[in-house]
Write a protein that binds this DNA or RNA. Structure first.
Lengths: 266, 266
DNA sequence: CTTCTCTAGGTACAGCGTACGTAGAAGCAC
DNA sequence: GTGCTTCTACGTACGCTGTACCTAGAGAAG
């Protein structure tokens, strides 16, 4: 595959994901010649690779410390500042040494993703009222997203599942157990729930990104409404009554989402 | 701005978006010396820049043709194949000529985004039943997303609003007018609605991305459920009853989302 | 001790976005 | 018409990216 640089998106659906450059290795040969540096059947999912095989010298770093270093950079300077060189330098390591821990940059992102999922403080057991529990969970999720402005974009682009994300999933399933919904339905509900919080955080982030951008957008919208091409938009703009309070927008929409989740299956 | 390469995300919220390299130009000087190549107050939003000023030679290309070329590349080879060089070559133009039409690559993405929003075939007036109209709209949206597998990722990363997106917005507002909700509330409803469809499409895309990846994920999940660390996950896996049919997952969740939208304000 | 496997890290390459500068074409004022 | 101005086209160059490949050397297994 000649094209490199696939920073966020996993891959296209139409073509084989990554097997192209691994498959031809030892293809057809009965004896695997000499050694196997990263064997062809190595799992794509980083969580399926053991962190340490216990053979050679002890690694100088851990997945946790690598993730922490990358997160620190992303928090301070944005996700685009997280390059392999940058993270390696932050760890005091050579650039290519990082590749001993993380076969591809995507996996570094996976590490970051799951590390943030470890920031949840989940109660040992659900509180009892499903709606209350879900609201508390959503608020905590939004807080984490706000703490790491780059996170929503990453979550939306890469549906990764690491150990910490599993802990979260387990908690969500526990909280929604009283609904009587089946496991599959509750997973779908979780997707809806997470998706909403994540998108809200992402919207918040871009809205806060720049006053100029927002002012321009408002101007463009107003101009469009005035043009007469978009009558309903114009009407929505000039409608009577107070506009909805933006500071409670999250709770308001969250309420609708939870209602949708708790509704009985059709 | 030393850091370039910001493929999808707009910017960090903490720092000024792009004014850094434009502001110092002619700062304090009373007379604007000589010419103004891309003046400092040029709008960030591409839709606020006129496509043609009518002075020099006629441009050889149009925004529409540029967007079409970029979309063709993205459809065929994925969003990462869309580089300025690649698009310019597809147009038969020199790389840097593209920058006469599109000041930054982000704006090229905006063009692509709005071009796909032009693929909706919207009826001249709402059909009458709000739920029916919304279901039809969601199906059309999903169809567009499936036609352009790279689209969900882009939409999730960049909340762009061009002329075609405005047409869509206007239609949504028209369809939801009978709900009695205010303009702001209907905009929030639209965000919820679009977000759901987009995330669903994005999920579909990654699920279809590779059999190996999906198999590994399933294996990892099963192993996690077996480990005893995630009791509710395990229970959800072994629960009795048929798992929900994946082929109707979209309609099922869409139904919940529409219910949430149509619910009266609290 | 030998051997084998693992880690650390340097070098190199193709490709990216785009700043900058030059050459020439087309519209406007006269 | 002439001349000025403003636009378009595009080559070159820079700093950055992910990562393939290779060489040493450390440390456990036999």
């Amino acid at each position: 595959m000649p094209s490199s640089k696939r920073p966020t998106s996993p891959d296209e659906p139409g073509q084989q994901p990554t097997g192209t450059e691994n498959a031809p290795r030892n293809a057809g040969g009965p004896a695997p010649e000499s050694a196997t540096p990263t064997p062809p059947d190595a799992p794509e999912l980083i969580w399926l690779r053991p962190e340490r095989t216990g053979r050679g010298p002890r690694p100088a770093h851990s997945r946790a410390s690598i993730a922490a270093a990358a997160i620190a950079i992303a928090d301070a300077e944005g996700l685009d500042a997280v390059s392999m060189r940058r993270v390696a330098a932050a760890l005091g390591a050579g650039t290519m040494s990082l590749y001993n821990y993380v076969p591809k940059k995507e996996h570094l992102l996976d590490l970051m993703l799951d590390a943030t999922a470890g920031e949840y403080e989940l109660p040992p057991a659900p509180g009892g009222d499903c709606r209350t529990d879900l609201i508390a969970l959503a608020r905590q999720q939004l807080a984490i997203f706000r703490r790491h402005p780059w996170l929503p974009g990453l979550v939306l682009a890469r549906p990764g599942i690491g150990p910490n994300a599993l802990r979260y999933t387990d908690h969500f399933l526990a909280v929604t157990a009283p609904t009587g919904l089946g496991g599959g339905a509750r997973m779908e509900a979780m997707a809806l729930f997470n998706g909403f919080v994540c998108q809200f955080a992402q919207y918040e982030r871009t809205a806060a990104a720049g006053a100029k951008w927002q002012a321009e957008l408002a101007g463009y919208l107003a101009q469009a409404a005035m043009s007469g091409e978009y009558p309903h938009l114009a009407q929505a703009f000039t409608a009577p009554g107070p506009p909805p309070d933006p500071s409670t927008a999250f709770e308001r929409s969250l309420d609708r989402v939870i209602t949708a989740i708790l509704a009985p299956p059709p």
